[in-house]
Design a protein around this nucleic acid. Sequence first.
DNA 1: GGGGATATGTGGTTAGACCACAAACGTGAT
DNA 2: ATCACGTTTGTGGTCTAACCACATATCCCC
Lengths: 241, 241
Amino acid sequence: MRAHEVVLGWVEHEIAEGRILIGQRLPAERTIADQLRVSRTSVREAIRVLEAMGMVRSGVGSGPEAGTLLIADPSAPFTAAMRLHFATSHLPVDDIVQTRTLLESWAVEHADSSSPFLKSAALLLDAMDEPGLETECFLQLDAEFHVALSQAAGNVLISTMMGALRDSIEHYTLDMIGNLPDWSAMAMRLRAEHRQIYDVVLSGDPVEASALVAAHIEGYYREAGFPSYQKSAAELARPRP
Amino acid sequence: MRAHEVVLGWVEHEIAEGRILIGQRLPAERTIADQLRVSRTSVREAIRVLEAMGMVRSGVGSGPEAGTLLIADPSAPFTAAMRLHFATSHLPVDDIVQTRTLLESWAVEHADSSSPFLKSAALLLDAMDEPGLETECFLQLDAEFHVALSQAAGNVLISTMMGALRDSIEHYTLDMIGNLPDWSAMAMRLRAEHRQIYDVVLSGDPVEASALVAAHIEGYYREAGFPSYQKSAAELARPRP
DNA sequence: GGGGATATGTGGTTAGACCACAAACGTGAT
DNA sequence: ATCACGTTTGTGGTCTAACCACATATCCCC
């Protein structure tokens, strides 16, 4: 086992044992190196890996921003990999729409209407009603809302995948709104659809909720000027009407 | 921008420009360091990141196994992150079954029956018929078969997610076969079901294929001794009969 | 008490050296 | 001519030791 893998194993172990909690600092690089009898070089290689996976964040200097912090929620490792992935190879928008539709319509269909994540979703909806909200912020809240909805189904994997998609989707959406003739009208429409979806999920009508979500996603991408996206997303997700 | 990020950017650029192809070697660490005017240490940190994401593989010595090879198909970055993720936090089996069922039944439903991936799938089926095949190898081929099926739908994201799940699933399946009273009987049954699914996909009956896949996955997990898994996977994937 | 110089501790980076390994190359004996 | 064995070459793997930049904490002088 290579030296930096020893370090990775040690960190994983420390986390599993609860000796390092989220938000806490890892020991200094020199300390870890000394403790594990490896060079600081190897410790740094390990930290680069953890950083790439979104598990830690390094900062120089002193004070609360300095040192290497553990910032990983369990779903984080996904995100970084996806980000680099999408930075390298641009995925077909159709694929993204299909996948979003599949995952999200499944999620709302299996959502627990008493899930605390729905309360988060409601707060996000309120935040999106804020007048004079920056477009960028709106899109961020939009993405958050969809992730929160997905979490309500209680499937860690599905939530994780949606969370991974979120950041990547923001990139596309920002590009897309340039194609829109009237963004504020679109924002209004999105707000209304979000409310409708939320209400139906809360009222416990899985089938209707699923259909609404599919239509919502499909409509968004189509109106934002992706003519290549022909087929109905709803149909793709649920081809047997 | 930190030094190792410069290296990462350079590698991404070289890949995007087509100067480094899959299966080819990156320049030697010392060469890259020299060329980019950074230290070899920084080059190594960048390579560790790429390695963690499954994009490259490093080997010492000389010859075809040596050097740093680019092995990334577009879906690779997922895998490593997932692996570390699963190593840290054990996911509920139910979640995995649900996700597999959702992704795979969608994939076969939208499979292109003329896809070259189906030819790969056929070869894998033949390989699984090999008498005296090690259990471990069989499970590997099994996983490969499912990934190949998923690829036939032509959605990069879905294929990617399935590919990411594959390695993780192997871990569980290996544990599971210990619970089986008669592995060779199960293997026989899996072979038969695989053939059946393959035939139906090839014949172009999406609905039937989807149902078969769901039943196949569900049956496997249930028989392998996960009583916690109660609900029908087929029902989960397609709750409106 | 205030304010600026200094000490401390952090990650970021570099240079240079050695090791282990595996293939390719030479050189010798047969 | 051929084979076997040592040598060379080039690769990643590791380590030491030093310096830098940065941000806080501390101290000492005014």
